[in-house]
C-alpha cells in the first residue's frame, strides 16, 4: 500500500491482428497498468502477457537494445521497445507493428526474412580478394582508423526501424532501404572486400537502390544505433553517380 498518488496509470493501446485468425478483424485493444520506476516497454509488454493477455504476440530477445528484435511503432515512430522508458512517453501509448514487414501477429513482424533477402540480393558479405588465407600467419594489416570507420557502419543491428520509417519503402516494396545502402557502404569501405564501385553499381545502381532513395532522412533520424545514414547514402550516391 505504498502506492503514492503520483504513480501514473498507463493506457497501452495495442494494434492487434493475428493472420492465422483472419476472421477476427484488426483492432486496437487497450490495457491499463500502473507505471513503475525504470519501466521499459519490455517490462510493460511482458507484464501484460503474464497477467492480462497470454495471447499477445511480440518479440524480445536481448531486452538490452543490441539484438534488433523489438522494433515497433511507438506513438507513430519506429523504435526499439526494449529500451524505451515509459517515463519518456505520455500516459497514452499506442503500439503498432513495424509496417513494410510481413506481419506475424500483433506486434511481431518478420524482419529476419526481409533482412536475409536483402543480404542475398546485395551480396552483403566480404568478397575476399584472396582465394586462400593461411590462418597460421599474421592477419592482414589494417589501418586502425579505417578499422574504426568500418566498425561504425558495422554497428547496424538490422532492426528494420529505418525501413519502417522510410516513406519510400512504404510506397515501393522493392526498395533496399537505408539498411541495405549502409551495408553496401560498409563493404565498399572494407579493404578486405575486393569489389569495386562498378561491382557495387550492379547491386544498388538503380531505382530500387541508391537512386530510389528520396532523401527523406527519417532513417537517419530514427536509427536506434545512430548510424550516419545521411552521409553514407550521400557518399554512396556520389560514387554510384560517377559510374554514369
Amino acid at each position: 500500500m505504498t502506492a503514492s498518488t503520483d504513480v501514473r496509470r498507463l493506457r497501452i493501446h495495442v494494434l492487434r491482428y493475428n493472420p492465422a485468425e483472419p476472421e477476427k478483424a484488426a483492432r486496437i485493444q487497450t490495457y491499463e497498468l500502473d507505471e513503475a520506476e525504470g519501466m521499459t516497454l519490455f517490462i510493460v509488454l511482458s507484464e501484460l502477457r503474464e497477467k492480462h493477455d497470454p495471447s499477445l504476440q511480440f518479440d524480445f530477445v536481448c531486452r538490452a537494445g543490441v539484438c534488433g528484435s523489438c522494433g515497433m511503432v511507438v506513438n507513430g515512430q519506429p523504435g526499439l521497445a526494449c529500451r524505451t522508458l515509459t517515463a519518456e512517453l505520455p500516459a497514452d501509448i499506442t503500439l503498432a507493428p513495424l509496417p513494410t514487414f510481413e506481419l506475424i501477429g500483433d506486434l511481431s513482424v518478420n524482419t529476419g526474412k526481409w533482412m536475409r533477402e536483402m543480404t542475398e540480393r546485395l551480396e552483403a558479405w566480404v568478397h575476399a580478394k584472396q582465394q586462400e588465407v593461411d590462418l597460421r600467419r599474421h592477419e592482414e594489416h589494417m589501418d586502425p582508423d579505417l578499422a574504426d570507420e568500418v566498425y561504425e557502419l558495422d554497428r547496424c543491428i538490422e532492426c528494420g526501424c529505418c525501413v519502417a520509417a522510410c516513406g519510400t519503402a512504404h510506397m515501393r516494396t522493392d526498395f533496399v532501404g537505408a539498411v541495405g545502402l549502409n551495408k553496401v557502404a560498409r563493404f565498399s569501405l572494407d579493404p578486405r572486400d575486393g569489389r569495386t564501385d562498378a561491382d557495387m553499381y550492379e547491386l544498388v545502381g538503380n531505382d530500387d537502390g541508391v537512386f530510389g532513395c528520396m532523401s527523406l532522412l527519417a532513417c537517419n533520424d530514427l536509427c536506434p544505433k545512430e548510424l550516419p545514414l545521411q552521409s553514407q547514402i550521400a557518399y554512396l550516391r556520389r560514387r554510384m553517380a560517377k559510374q554514369a
Partner: peptide, 29 residues
C-alpha cells in the same frame, strides 16, 4: 601444410553483365 590450413575463402566472382547506367544519369539529370 599451407593448403590444408588455408582459410578456404569463397570468392564470389562478379558476373560481368553491366547494369544500365541510366538510373544514375536520370538521377543526375
Amino acid at each position: 601444410m599451407t593448403n590444408t590450413l588455408a582459410g578456404r575463402l569463397a570468392v564470389n566472382a562478379s558476373v560481368p553483365v553491366q547494369a544500365s547506367r541510366w538510373p544514375a544519369r536520370l538521377d543526375l539529370a
